[in-house]
Design a binder for these strands. Structure first.
Lengths: 225, 225
DNA sequence: ACAAAAGTGTTGTTACTACACCCATGG
DNA sequence: CCATGGGTGTAGTAACAACACTTTTGT
């Protein structure tokens, strides 16, 4: 049961914040923006901003990511809402946190003069974060690891064509541990979700790897790991 | 990155709504309140209300449940936030939905004259709901079923002592399908989370059932089903 | 020919499913 | 002694983990 009345003290500002993950060079990375406003000047934070007047939170996140980073994530879902009354020293602002994934290839940053700095940071070594963003980071990582086991979200972190080494690298970076190459290939093949594209990844001074494609990029659920 | 400024058009009301589940007579039930305010007079909705000024959402849910139903849930967690700009016809109100469980024994209702009616409804046959509460119900049910498989939340729907029949009834009601009695008992015993209390449940004209207790009532994660 | 990553099978163990009868009690 | 739910075991199958060598290419 919800009730709407007229503007009152109970009114609250609603922010959206996005935790964007990608895997680069075998490391799980996330995007942070260096703040240029008090009281967190110089601190790093997830990209975010206030919810627009007649805008859904999802649309707000997309807009804010475009403006602040130039990124259009390939996967985006609501994570959780953080509402501690003291989380923003300047007033009551609750944050609807979102969870986003992107392939390394799409992770080129638009840098604008508007923000001090925008950078990818390894999840294993984040700097001091503003607000309660440390807590948001922990929740996002937990969600990512959990979903890896029963959905195909890893798809969203890979380009159209990829090698088995690429795919396994994503899983290993997220889980933070190595996986057996043969068992991994067997499992992925048995799921029937990927198919060889017919092309080869040449380039190293070694045997070229077969390239694969996802049969279907839409989200689906299954036992993966 | 979030930013706090002074009151503005962007301010929003934040409601909390709670989906409370219990299992009674083998059926999964949820608690609804009949509304007495326009524009949803007579419609049913989950208990809820506006977030207090310097109150966490969790505290707000606890308070509202106490006031509206007299119930103190044994399990309570955030579900998701529903923010469609048109979800409340009277203004911009986003709803932080919560997910609660309670044993049948604790589900006695405090009925007050303040609300038209407060009733347990079988999840399989809910009436027409106000706002976007149909969507909230679907999300809550999905969460419940998912968590049943990898957490011990079912614990929160049982009294201190219970028989295997009680335990299995909870699982079957939630999943909406029957389970094999022997396999179920084997699995539950192998998890090592319950132990016989030594007492027997007398009462039927049949062999009395052994009563069990949870070794530990705190939330934990494992492969259950 | 060598370095470097790609690719490939088997075996043992463990977890899951399906299935039917005897037991203890109250009336 | 009968009706009612309580309580138990086995066998076949499927999924998982551990493990090392051969292949193909570039230099």
């Amino acid at each position: 049961m919800t009730a709407a009345t007229h503007p009152s003290k109970q009114d609250v500002k609603v922010a959206v914040d996005a935790v964007i993950f990608t895997v680069r060079d075998g490391r799980l990375m996330t995007l942070l923006i260096q703040m240029n406003k008090r009281p967190f000047t110089g601190r790093w934070a997830f990209p975010g901003g206030l919810l627009g007047d007649r805008q859904t939170a999802l649309a707000a996140v997309r807009r804010i990511l475009r403006e602040q980073t130039g990124i259009a994530p390939s996967y985006l879902e609501q994570l959780a809402t953080f509402d501690d009354p003291g989380r923003d020293p300047l007033g009551r602002v609750i944050s609807m946190a979102y969870f986003a994934l992107i392939p390394d290839a799409g992770a080129r940053l638009r840098t604008t003069a508007k923000y001090t700095d925008v950078r990818w940071w390894p999840v294993a070594g984040l700097p001091a974060l503003a607000y309660d963003h440390r807590e948001i980071a922990a929740a996002a990582l937990a969600r990512l690891r959990a979903k890896l086991g029963y959905t195909n979200i890893a798809w969203s972190m890979l380009p159209r064509e990829f090698t088995f080494a690429d795919l396994q690298e994503v899983y290993e970076a997220i889980l933070g541990r190595g996986l057996d190459k043969r068992n991994f290939r067997k499992k992925m093949m048995s799921l029937g979700l990927i198919a060889p594209s017919g092309n080869l990844a040449r380039g190293g001074s070694h045997r070229p790897a077969a390239l694969f494609r996802f049969r279907d990029r839409r989200p689906s659920f299954m036992d993966i790991l």
